[in-house]
């Protein structure tokens, strides 16, 4: 009886040590730091299609800070609200020329270069509208951690759920900050000013 109990204790000890070794050496705990998003690794160069139907690459954004927002032109509420807000915040943070506003569609099926061009002109200030093939858009979404998903509206039409966070990049294309959709104006303006000063 006493021997049996000793064996159980010994087994417990072995299991405990094994768990400890596993936790300490598991690939997950080793990989965690590498998965953190750093400004150097976030985003990346991309090539999309401009409103003129011609390729538009990251190099055309060099030399001026820019903010990146993903949406779609059939979006009745959030997208026009966010673009109108960005135009206003840009005026508050230094004027229409202070930085570029880049609007990338998550709905390339419906948003061609023409649609993006017309839409981007509707806010009374320059906005760069970009589209691309489904593969190009998917690749940019992956690079910038953007989620989007079609939601059928029942009548054969659809809307798109999508990340509405605005991404900020300095004049060298380095990621500097984000503006959340529900963020107050003042902290947003402060971030934009820091972005243009960087």
């Amino acid at each position: 009886m006493r021997q049996a109990r000793l064996i159980i204790w010994a087994l417990c000890a072995v299991v405990l040590v094994a768990i400890g070794v596993f936790v300490l050496t598991s690939p997950r705990s080793q990989q965690a730091p590498a998965r953190m998003v750093t400004s150097a690794s976030f985003g990346g160069p991309f090539t999309l299609v401009g409103a003129d139907g011609q390729p538009f690459g990251t190099q055309e954004l060099k030399g001026k800070p820019y903010v990146l927002f993903f949406g779609f032109t059939h979006c009745p509420d959030t997208c026009p609200t966010t673009l109108a807000r960005l135009v206003k915040l840009r005026r508050d943070a230094g004027g229409d020329g202070a930085f570029n506003i880049v609007f990338v569609t998550v709905d390339p099926e419906r948003d061609g270069p023409k649609e993006m061009g017309t839409y981007s002109k509707a806010f009374g200030a320059p906005i760069i509208g970009l589209t691309g093939s489904t593969a190009q858009i998917d690749s940019v979404k992956r690079e910038f951690g953007i989620f989007s998903q079609k939601v059928p509206t029942g009548d054969g039409d659809y809307t798109v759920d999508h990340t509405a966070t605005v991404l900020l990049f300095d004049r060298d294309g380095k990621f500097v900050a984000t503006i959340a959709p529900d963020e107050q104006d003042q902290p947003a303006i402060d971030k934009l000013k820091r972005m243009t000063a960087a």
Binding site: D77, T78, F147, D161, A180
Partner: peptide, 9 residues
């Protein structure tokens, strides 16, 4: 509504 940065309508 905004759910973890994602706009859902």
């Amino acid at each position: 509504s905004i759910d973890n940065g994602v706009m859902r309508m």
